[in-house]
Amino acid sequence: MKRKAENEVKLTLPSRSSNESYARVAVAAFAAQLDPTLEEINDLKTAVSEAVTNCIVHAYPDRIGPVTITVGLYAGNRVRVQVRDKGVGIADVKQAMEPLFTTGGGERAGLGFAVMQTFTDRLRVRSAPGKGTAVIMEKEIRKR
């Protein structure tokens, strides 16, 4: 999706776990103008929750840093969500995306990227160690 967004919002929040709920609800509320079904809204909320949690748990393991979320609405009823951090970055993105791979300890399932992949149409991850990570997710909201 190279075209310009028809409508776009950008928000930056500190990587506190108490912001997880706000982040997913904010994205869902903005995307609501495309008239999604309850299932589509839930898909989006779940995917965003995973991306933001990754920033909190992995990108900033021992400090609070900025998480920037850009939500764009595009022609063809498509929503694109970018979740960006300036944290530690991922050395091996391919490995990090493997289901069950986690550096988060016993209570983390290692399924964050698998959930993002399942609940959106397209997932891209760009990362550089020491610079940060950007997760881009796209989802088509079906016309009703």
Partner: peptide, 10 residues
């Protein structure tokens, strides 16, 4: 009302 993969871990 909502669960992400943290619930899987739980």
């Amino acid at each position: 009302s909502f669960m992400d993969s943290s619930g899987i871990g739980l």
